[in-house]
Nucleic acid binder design. Structure first.
Lengths: 239, 239
DNA sequence: TCCCGCCTTTTGGTCGGACCAATTTTCGGA
DNA sequence: TCCGAAAATTGGTCCGACCAAAAGGCGGGA
């Protein structure tokens, strides 16, 4: 096993995660108001600037609601939460998603990427095909190298599937994939370790074939099938 | 016309939006590197603390790429952009979406809310129905009041449709709707002005009927139809 | 007893200065 | 011309102090 660079967390991050944990664990309930920045400063012996920066970031993540000169309260992150909130939530759990989260994610993938596949199969230019072929050529090149760089392959698979969304003509789909990025990367890494690199690349090529053939329904069903295979294989592994 | 609370932007926000504007307007091109934080501090007479915080936030929004001790460059926000980037882009344009953006949005809506509708129609508890009925009752109450508060109705419609996503059991769909929130609110306001308040509430009830009846395909088709009606009505208006 | 206006306290927001560690640039010597 | 050490520059972090606005407390008048 390789030991990567050891990241030294900053004071800000430490305080941020501490607070995040208290919110997610329920110690701090939705609607609870936080102590003032000064009070936190005294408790934690951290400067107010750092406290302030951490609180501001937690606000952006959807965990807090800060009103100038009134204070910060724990936000109802089910109401205001975004993908960023979810990413923080998953990271808190060591990067592991619950069974239900995984299912939800795959379902969202079918909804979004499935729509993109359908549209692209129905309507595409030679340029679109060339664009995707180019990305596939890169995965082939990577596949030829030994040993296999799983991270790089996952990155390429991400770009390829985002490419499908880009070329579908929908301006929102690629943005949504970017939003999901950490989760999607995790997914591809696991898929590579479950089914092997070749199988994943082969499947990617299959989508292009179906797009080229204009088989919108076939491409959609293929996506559904591979999602189901992934989920059942995951269940298999747990047993 | 009602004048709401006047929001006083903080220095950080002012600086942030200024930079955002320069990036989106093309004055700062993708790949351009920004002056150092100290230089910006001198130019703007804003403290480095605030400059730093603003840059960090712009990085999170996908507009900048910051490398420690090397500086900040304008990111390719088409590659790294998220919904937040898009929201900023639309806000810059006075809240107006292009024709293509509107189409893309409605398509994304069909993909996401359509999936939620299907799942909920196929499988739901009495509790789910009661939850949605409760939200509908609130819209009815609002509808009875005169004059009509369009903003409040749009808010309720948003909550109702998010409720469908929440109750579909998918943990991602509500988060995606939150992400889209500014755009969705704009959509409902326009829909209310186009078709009237009653028609929108009536349509909302129709979805619940179809869910109750377990008619997944019917609910999905209903959504598709109303989306098409909205788009063609919009075209009509432009002419 | 209640309400209005003044004054103190508390609040988030901002500031400039300082230090750190790593990178980039500079420049003198081989 | 090239190399390597020193200097300058960079983003990241931290501190303690100050600001203006909001909240809360207080006292006097009705």
């Amino acid at each position: 096993m390789q030991i990567g660079v050891i990241e030294v967390p900053t004071l800000k991050e430490l305080f941020e995660h501490k607070l995040e944990e208290q919110i997610l664990s329920g110690k701090l309930k939705v609607g609870d108001s936080l102590p003032s920045e000064r009070q936190l400063q005294e408790e934690t012996r951290i400067s107010k600037t750092v406290i302030h920066a951490a609180l501001a970031e937690l606000e952006q993540k959807g965990f807090l609601e800060i009103t100038p000169r009134r204070g910060a309260v724990v936000a109802n992150y089910e109401e205001t939460g975004t993908m960023e909130t979810l990413n923080a939530l998953i990271r808190m759990n060591g990067g592991n998603m619950t069974r239900k989260q995984t299912r939800s994610f795959m379902e969202a993938r079918i909804a979004i990427e499935g729509s993109a596949l359908r549209r692209l199969a129905e309507k595409h230019s030679d340029d679109d095909i060339a664009y995707l072929e180019d990305l596939l050529a890169k995965t082939d090149a990577l596949l030829a190298e030994k040993p296999l760089d799983a991270d790089a392959l996952a990155e390429l698979l991400f770009r390829y599937h985002r490419g499908i969304c880009v070329r579908s003509g929908n301006e929102f789909f690629p943005l949504l994939l970017n939003e999901f990025r950490p989760i999607i990367m995790e997914f591809w890494l696991r898929s590579i370790s479950l089914f092997g690199a070749e199988a994943n690349v082969h499947l990617a090529k299959r989508y292009l074939d179906l797009i080229r053939a204009g088989d919108a329904e076939g491409a959609f069903r293929r996506l559904q099938r591979s999602v189901n295979e992934y989920l059942s294989c995951l269940d298999e592994q747990i047993k």
